[in-house]
Every structure is written in structure tokens, then in C-alpha cells.
Design a protein around this nucleic acid. Structure first.
Lengths: 209, 209
DNA sequence: TTTTCATTTGACTGATCGGTCAACTCAGGC
DNA sequence: GCCTGAGTTGACCGATCAGTCAAATGAAAA
């Protein structure tokens, strides 16, 4: 009980960072331990296996992300501003990764999901869960936009998934192109998908608060 | 010179199949050789390294894909039917993978790109190149749709990338959900993005030839 | 027939992989 | 002052990793 359990937290942080910047397959338990200044025995004291660590790291990363999403998608904010704010957040998050690592790293959750969902059911399930949670924020915003008459009537849950698909797609393109700029396409794209009038999309470039 | 160079082709086919079904990191050179009934020495006779094989396998897979895309995007076909046909093709391809492997496997090119573009520049570049080539088909279809007055004036190249982003996103979701059905969202989504009137999207469920 | 050379073979290397283990440390409760 | 048990340490395991190599094979060119 040397240093409480910040060894565990250090391992979670380091693992998420390395996997995000590289990939699950390219990061070994030894690398994680070395960068976290922990020994292998400690690793396997806290986590039964490498893939269990990955699941725990996803959970931990999501936990740290939730306050931001709760703020962005606050019902206090007009629904279309929530969506615009989310696009801005996605961009800023990638920009921050770019500054730290010098590369566009995409979405950590879905990178793991893409790499491992055909092989590791635990990670697939977890990745899927995060996807569903994120869609709930989008669905609520769309629903409120419909209620306020800003966009046409539509299947909000299904549309939220379409929107999230576009987010994932753009992040994947940005990662492969290593180009932040295309993330700026995100806001007009999702506005089009929910039927915001084209003239409102063209004008008002970013946030208009 | 036993069997001409079908050993090389066998290695390419096997590699693409295994990597598609699993991932680059999860598939070893030994696995590939075993499944291709080749020996390690043969592997390294044809390919200088594992990542060179991956690049070659992408090229080879693309080569085999082109005739289908040329047919689907034939200028003979009305532009919106080309896009609908492409959505159908994407669905059918995943369905075929599902039958062979029992799982939705997503887009092989971008799975590789997603996993390795932060680590292997050769693979990133190749993955990017394929992305650009595919966008050209989409851009041409959009351009023709604009010319025929089916959709509003727009930046066709930029929109093609947005569309392709949606394709990638949906495939990623389908892979993580292991669910073919959501790929059916693709056609209405990309039609919305290029501004096909909503009443035409709702009607005419699939191909209308 | 002999030469040539792309191809094939299988044994081999050293490094690294994920994971195990018994011994050790040390704060808190008794 | 001893005991307990969460946390730490570093040596260790067998398997597997990507990559090497010298020798063998055999079809086509000479």
C-alpha cells in the first residue's frame, strides 16, 4: 500500500495514451509498465489480462469524458448549439492530441473497437456500449430540435446513430489523412442529416452565442 | 519455379483475408504462411517485410475490386442509381463476408489504416490513396447529378469526401455492432447529404431499375 | 548437357510476447 | 509487538514473434 492505488491509475492512463497513439497490438504489457514506472507483477496484480486492462482503460477514459459531454449537451443549451458545440469539442480534442503527439489519433474507443471487435468480445461489447451512450446525447438534442420545430419530424434514435456514424467516419478520415481540417466538415454534415435548412448551414460558420 | 508465382498470389490472398477477419497485429507471418501452405523463406523471398506484404495485399485487393466499381459507377448509369448501386454493393460485400466468416468485418482498407496509420507511413499512404481513388467515383456521380439538376449546386469533391466518411462510419458501426442491418441506412444518409429531395428518399426503397 | 536463376525448404536466431510466482515491503488493526 | 493482507519486486516460463540463411530444386535457356 505504498502509494495508495495511483499505480493502478497510472497504468490506466498510460495504457489509454499508448493505445490511442499507437494500437492495441503494437503496445505490449512491458511498454505500458515501463512508461508507467510499474513492474509487471503490479500490472497483473490489478488486471487479470492485457485485454481486461483495455476494457478498464476504456471505462476510465469514458468516466473522464462524461463531464464535458454533460456540459456540452446540457438541456440549458439550445439543441442545435449543443450539436455545434459537440463538433467543436471533437475538433478541439483532436487538436489537443495533435499537439501532444504530433498526429491526428482519431477516436480511441472506436480504434480499439475496429481493431479488436472481431477477436475480443469483451472489448467489442464495451466499445459498443460507449457508442450507445454517446448516441443518447445526440438523440436528445435531435429530439429537442424537433420539438422546437427547428428540424422536421424524424426517427431521432436512428438519426442519432447516422450522425454518430458520420462523426466516426470523419475522425477515421482525419486520422488516415493526418489532417485536422476535415473535421470542420462535421457540423454542416450532421446539420444536413437532420434537415436543418441549407441557408442556415451556409451562414453562421461556427458557434453563434 | 515450381508453380509459377501462385505462391505469391496465395500469400497475398491469405494475408488480406486473415487481416480483414482479424487485424494486422493479431496475424503473424507464421499464420499467413501456414494458411497459405508456404514456408517462411518463400514469404521473405517475395516480400521484404510483413508491412510490405500488407501494402501489396491492399494493392492486390484494390485491383480485384476495381472492375466492380467501374461497372457500378459506369457513366451509362443514371448518377443517383450509381450511388444507390454502390450502397447495395457495400451491403452485399459485407453480407458475403458475414457468410464466409460469420461476422461483419468492415472495410479492410480502413481497418488497416485505422490500426497502423500512426505507426507505419507506407500503409497510411496506401490506405489514403485507396480512399482518394474511391472518392473519385463518388465525386463523378455527384457532379453528374448536379449537371442533370437532380441535386443542388455544390462542391462535389468535398461532398464526395463527406459521403465517403459516412460510408466508413457506417461500416465501422456495423463491424462493432456486428450488425448488417444498419448498412441499409447508408443510401438515405448519402442522398440527404447531397440534397436529394426528402420525398424521393422516403419512397423507392432500394434500386428502381 | 550444362548452366542459370527464380523459387523452395526447413532449420535457425535473438528478441519479445503475455503471463506466473514466491518472496518481500510496510501501513493499520489487534 | 505481532499479524494480516494489499501492494511491490524481479526473476522466470514457454510460446511466439519477425526475420535470416545456406542448401536444395527444377524449369528454361545455352
Amino acid at each position: 500500500m505504498k502509494t495508495e492505488c495511483d499505480t493502478k491509475q497510472k497504468l490506466l492512463d498510460t495504457a489509454m495514451r499508448l493505445i490511442w497513439e499507437q494500437s492495441y497490438g503494437a503496445v505490449s504489457v512491458d511498454h505500458i509498465c515501463e512508461r508507467a514506472s510499474a513492474k509487471k507483477g503490479s500490472f497483473y496484480h490489478f488486471f487479470p489480462s492485457k485485454s481486461d486492462l483495455a476494457v478498464a482503460a476504456i471505462d476510465d477514459h469514458w468516466r473522464k469524458l462524461r463531464p464535458d459531454l454533460d456540459r456540452i449537451f446540457s438541456p440549458q443549451t439550445p439543441p442545435l448549439e449543443r450539436l455545434a458545440g459537440y463538433c467543436e469539442f471533437v475538433y478541439e480534442q483532436q487538436k489537443q492530441q495533435m499537439q501532444r503527439f504530433g498526429r491526428v489519433c482519431g477516436c480511441a474507443f472506436t480504434s480499439l473497437g475496429s481493431e479488436l471487435s472481431t477477436q475480443d468480445e469483451k472489448i467489442r461489447k464495451k466499445s459498443l456500449q460507449i457508442m450507445e451512450w454517446r448516441c443518447k446525447y445526440l438523440a436528445a438534442a435531435i429530439r429537442d430540435a424537433v420539438r422546437e420545430g427547428l428540424v422536421p419530424e424524424q426517427d431521432c434514435d436512428a438519426k442519432a446513430r447516422d450522425l454518430y456514424g458520420s462523426v466516426l467516419g470523419v475522425l477515421l478520415q482525419a486520422k488516415i489523412e493526418n489532417n485536422l481540417a476535415i473535421i470542420r466538415h462535421l457540423k454542416p454534415t450532421i446539420f444536413r442529416l437532420i434537415g436543418v435548412p441549407e441557408k442556415e448551414i451556409a451562414g453562421a460558420p461556427s458557434l453563434h452565442s
